[in-house]
Structure formats: C-alpha cells, structure tokens
Design a protein around this nucleic acid. Structure first.
Lengths: 223, 223
DNA sequence: CGTCCCCTTGAGTTATTTCAACACTCGTGG
DNA sequence: CCACGAGTGTTGAAATAACTCAAGGGGACG
C-alpha cells in the first residue's frame, strides 16, 4: 500500500510550487499548501494512516470509503469541488479516501493547521465547525440508510447532488453506479432499476447514465 | 412542546444546587453546572431548539432521535452513564434527545463552555475531540446500517453495549425492543426473532428480555 | 474490429417486513 | 387477593422489497 507520505517524498504527482500556494479551508482560514493530482480510483489516504494533511478538492470528486473484512463496502460521503476532507481531530484517518475521477487536490499540512488553531481561537472554532457539519450530514445519511426505501434513497441522493452543483435541475454524476450503490446501501442493479423507474415516471430525464435532469415531481419521491 | 428553557425557569425537575456543582465534560474540562431529573420518555431537548446547554448522563440512559414526516424514526445513538451529549458547534440542536428511562442529567451552560474554550486552547481542542468521537461512532453505525444483515446488526449492538457496561459478559439493556429496532434500522419483530435465534444458537442467554449474557461465539456473528 | 468495462434488464430467490395473534409483567382498583 | 388493562415482547404465516444470478447492450479505446 503506497502511503501519501511516500508519494509526497518522491512527489510523483505533485504539481505547482510546494511552498507558497494559499488554500482556503474555511472562510477566513487560509494556509500555505500545495496541489497534487490523483487519477481515477487512486487512493488519496488510507484508513489508519497518519493524518498529516488536510485536503480540499480543486477539481474532480472524491469518495470516503469503509470496508468490511469480507469486502462489503460503504461510501460515507462524496466530496465535490470546494469541499474540504480528511480533517481529523485525532492522529489517524478513520476511513480511506479515493479519487472518483482524475482529481486535483490541494493539501495543507496538519502541523500548520494546529499552529493556526493554537494562535487563533476563531480559526480553531472554524475547524470544529467543519467537523460538526460533517456530523450533521452523516446524521441525515444515517436516517436515509436506516429508514428509507430504495426509491427514496435515490431521489434524496439526486436532490442532494443537485443542490451542490451549479445549475438547479441538471446534475452530472461523476461516480459509477457501483459508487452510488455503496453510498446508498443498495446494489447496482437496484440503483439502475430505480433510475429507470424514475425516468419512466417522468421524475427525471437521463440523456446519458451520468447526466440527469431533475423534474419537479421528483421531490414527491423524497421524504 | 415544553422547552427546556421553560423547565429551567420554573425548575420543576431541578435538583441539587444550581450554582456550584462541577461537571466534568472531558478529562481536565470541568465547569459549573446543575442536575435535573427526567422521567422515562420525557424530551430533554428538541430538534431545531436553541442549544443553550450541554448535557452529561449522571444516571439512566438517553436516546438521540430523528423523525421523518411520516413517523419513521431513526435513533442515532444511546448515551449511558458518563456520556456527554447535546454538544453542538452551531446554534441549534440537530436532533432531539429523550430519556430512555428515568434519568438524572447534569447540565452546563453553553455560554460557560464557550468562555472556557476561548480562554483555553486545550479545552477548545477537547470539545472538538468530543464531536470528532461522535463522528467516528456515526461512521461505524453507517456501515452497520448500509451493509450489515439483521443478525450482524444485533450482534454488533450487543458487543458494543457490552464494552460500555461494567462487566465483560452480562449486559443490561435499558431500552425497549422498539428503541433497538429504530437504532438498528430494523423492525421490532426482526429484533425479537434475532435475539431468539442467538439464544437458540447459544451465542447469548436471556434471563429476561432486558438482561443478556454474551457467550464468546457471539463474536462470530459480528463483522 | 474486438475487448473491456459499465450499465441495463429479466427471472427467480430470500431476508426482512407486515399483519395478526398470543404471552408476560406490572400496576391499579375492585 | 384477584381481576383487569395497558404496555411490551414473542411467534407464526403471508407478502414484498431488494438481492442474486445470468444474459445482453453500448460506448470507449487500442
């Protein structure tokens, strides 16, 4: 397993200058960092690995992954352009992160972050706030996984994605059906069938499998 | 809906002195607070309510609850003696909390906490750490809800409960089957049947429905 | 043109839910 | 002291949502 530490050391992916580039982690919290490229399905960091960096998506998309010993997989979150991820309070990462598509990722050293938090109470508060926001999102997702039907899960997912992209109705999904299934706690077949059903019911249009247009009646399928 | 604010104002439940009692929220973080009693199924705070207090279980047990508009319920966590809950970074609570059984709860004013965090960087860090620990627990739970079978869910639940109580093998469950079902994303019937199955398979003994003794083969049902 | 990967669709299976009935415990009041 | 009722837990039988297995379609790329 290739560690990020090793990657940064030999810097096979590093682009841009490694010194001065400023990365804004939260409004008012900008720190020196650098950017790296990761290609589709490449691991950005692994579970149990030392959390020496904090990350922000510059382009592309990232998934948080947890795996059971027998291979069952659960995706905890997708991170899109502008999202910060991999911020841990403890020493190690609690899950692994992988590039959904080719990505450009900004990195900030954890040590720089700790220093900023120690000096500035407001900055410390904003870091806490980032973690707190993750917690909120996870609680919504827990409700989805514990209590919603396949139809509701897919509809919720599409609506959630649409509120994050630029346009109101057109959504493009960088991730595969397999990623969506592991995010929603379903199988790829169920996800595929549900997309088809939503299209038959005129709740969405699917120009292609990665491009979805939401119609207003989709909200009825959500809860 | 009776708000906590109102309760504290008229103090129908307040016991002990409301001034000097020290509550330890985390190792090294102790603040002045007071205690209140809540009876079984009483609401401690509600979703959307102002988060003016932080809470710690002195005796009894508490559940975090989220409800869908049609009544489907998901319990996000159980808090046992010693656990801190209701700590929000933002202004309002993201879920409601209810007493599973008659409870004694210690309360600390949020304002006192903020003051401590502003003055002491280490205290601020410990608050962040508390939120971070909640996040970790929730991620495990997400994997359970998304990818585990009913048998695995119940086994995981029992093992998790056993590591929190005093003794190694004997677990007592203060919560009803309905609470367990809403925590594990199952129905009460499935939970009940799974307990019966585990007992038939000699993975547990059930002297009564709230008292469970775990046998070592239970671990095999977990993942 | 062929291969690989991903997505879709169909048919049959199964885990879990739903609906229904019954058992147990524990107060309360006759 | 016993009868009653409410609340809670268990069990059975039938229904069903989602899964599994299997086959085929379509686009990207060499």
């Amino acid at each position: 397993m290739q560690t990020l530490q090793a990657q940064v050391g030999s810097a096979p992916h590093a682009v841009g200058d490694q010194t001065g580039k400023s990365v804004e982690l939260a409004p008012g919290v900008a720190l020196a960092g650098f950017t790296m490229r990761f290609e589709r399905n490449e691991e950005i960091f692994a579970e149990e690995e030392e959390a020496d960096f904090v990350y922000k998506v510059v382009s592309g998309a990232v998934r948080d992954v947890r795996i059971l010993s027998d291979g069952r997989r659960q995706i905890g979150a997708f991170h899109l352009v502008g999202d910060v991820f991999g911020l841990e309070c403890g020493e190690t990462h609690l899950y692994s992160a992988e590039a959904v598509v080719d990505c450009e990722i900004a990195l900030v050293r954890r040590s720089a972050l700790d220093k900023a938090a120690d000096q500035d109470g407001a900055a410390a508060r904003k870091l806490w706030d980032l973690t707190s926001r993750d917690l909120l999102r996870l609680q919504d997702h827990m409700l989805l996984l514990g209590r919603k039907s396949a139809l509701e899960r897919v509809a919720s997912f599409l609506i959630r994605m649409s509120t994050r992209g630029a346009a109101g109705e057109a959504v493009d999904l960088p991730m595969s059906r397999s990623d969506i299934a592991d995010y929603l706690g379903l199988t790829i077949e169920t996800v595929s069938r549900t997309f088809t059903q939503l299209e038959r019911d005129r709740a969405i249009s699917m120009p292609s499998s990665r491009h979805i247009v939401l119609h207003n009646r989709l909200a009825m399928a959500d809860s």
